[in-house]
Design a protein around this nucleic acid. Structure first.
Lengths: 246, 246
DNA sequence: AGACTTTTAAATGTCTGACAAATGAAAATC
DNA sequence: GATTTTCATTTGTCAGACATTTAAAAGTCT
């Protein structure tokens, strides 16, 4: 492992890259212990703080975990979906908010992905997953629910649909998109009328899933997408008009 | 901003979390300059190396960038798709390789996502994107192409299809899944016969996209998925048999 | 006065050395 | 033999220092 002291990216970044490569390529396997910080400092011919900065970079990506004590050290982490979700959601949230992605673009992507899951969900959904969907629909019908809670329940409902497809890779790919959209969705779901309509649409979707009716489920997803976009357009138009009058 | 010195996660992790929260919630906006390391150290009542470890964690997620010099410092980074792609791919690759995801599961997810893109791609594809698809098909037909190059071209072809949907959110969601599968795909695409067949399937898919035939494109994607799974099954069966005879 | 050069201050990048705290293993004791 | 104590190892943190980069300020020359 060689490090170029004059490389503009910095020593700690190079060391982090070298170790990350070793992990991704399989030269370092799960639960293997890395050399101690002092040993790494000697190997790369840098100081311990520099090594530590590199290790913290890897820890930020959940690639390693550290343990103090006699038999402690840095260990290659088995990257779990649990570890990866929050990172993916943070990244997706910032990508949407910082790049001025149009609501319609995010919405289109979300429902396109959900339609990809729907046929599988219809085929494989467990009674438990169906019960979760029904429970969230019930929650959404409760009066006095805050807008944030309603949206959280909406996300939970759609996540149950996605998870019903029984494919963790799909669930992971969708999690970022759906969760990252929640702030945007929050802005547009605030009228009592839309809650009733959304509840009816959700019920129809759950019915189709329960009945094993794939085309029906797809049609309901289309209806939900159309309605969501309609709401968004109305909200944005109203906002534009308010701006103009001001 | 409060920091608990006795929290088991460590000081630098807490500081990183605090700053990350500020970025995600919008209290720190893009291109805003963070206080200098010395100032942060004083604010959080920790030493400069500890602050630096926290900043390196954020830099590892591309949330900040640092600049040396008089007007330098740490700045909130505008997270771009370019920055986010490699991270997502690393994460997805490790998730697949470390968690023993079945090839069929990854394959199913990939084609489900591509089917989600197909109708949009048929509608919106530019002549340029169609030309890219044709060019990759041509490349795949060249004799003497290494397996790795063939697979890379295969990925490029499918990426062109996804990009043709004209939705960056979709492209991003798919990039991880498709790229992360490449090592697995490499294992199963090594027979000359499969290349011919794959070329024919790709051509049919490109034709459907060009003709604006959405159902046709979906059907071709189904055919490619079925064939890919067939190949994988054959390879895995042969390998199992070889293991038994040994 | 204006353009060019030099100086300077601020900031990150890195190093050295040190101590604290946790932790498991070995040694000592009952 | 079981329990307690000691101890070595390793990460976590701190303090202070110097190197390097960079842009602005000061100075200088035409």
């Amino acid at each position: 492992m060689k490090i170029d002291p004059d490389h503009p990216s910095g020593l700690s970044a190079q060391i982090a890259d070298a170790i990350r490569d070793a992990i991704v390529s399989g030269r370092l396997i799960v639960d293997e212990r890395l050399p101690s910080e002092a040993e790494l400092a000697e190997q790369f011919d840098v100081s311990r703080p520099t090594v530590r900065e590199a290790l913290k970079r890897l820890a930020a990506q959940s690639l390693i975990r550290t343990q103090r004590g006699a038999t402690g050290g840095a260990f290659v982490n088995r990257l779990s979906y649990q570890d990866a979700y929050p990172q993916a959601i943070t990244t997706a949230t910032l990508l949407l908010s910082m790049n001025d992605v149009a609501f319609e673009t995010a919405c289109e992507a979300r429902f396109a992905l959900e339609r990809a899951c729907a046929p599988l969900a219809v085929e494989r959904r467990t009674p438990d997953q169906l019960a979760t969907m029904r429970a969230e629909i019930f929650r959404q019908g409760q009066p006095g629910l805050t807008d944030e809670a309603f949206c959280a329940s909406d996300v939970a409902f759609h996540r149950a649909l996605v998870d019903a497809a029984g494919n963790p890779v799909l669930s992971y790919a969708l999690a970022g998109a759906v969760e990252a959209m929640q702030p945007l969705m929050n802005m547009i779901t605030f009228t009592a009328r839309s809650r009733e309509r959304i509840g009816a649409l959700h019920t129809a979707l759950a019915d189709a899933v329960e009945a094993g009716d794939a085309p029906g489920a797809l049609a309901e997803l289309d209806a939900i997408e159309t309605y969501t976009k309609e709401l968004a357009r109305a909200v944005l138009d109203a906002r534009a008009q308010a701006r103009q009058e001001r």
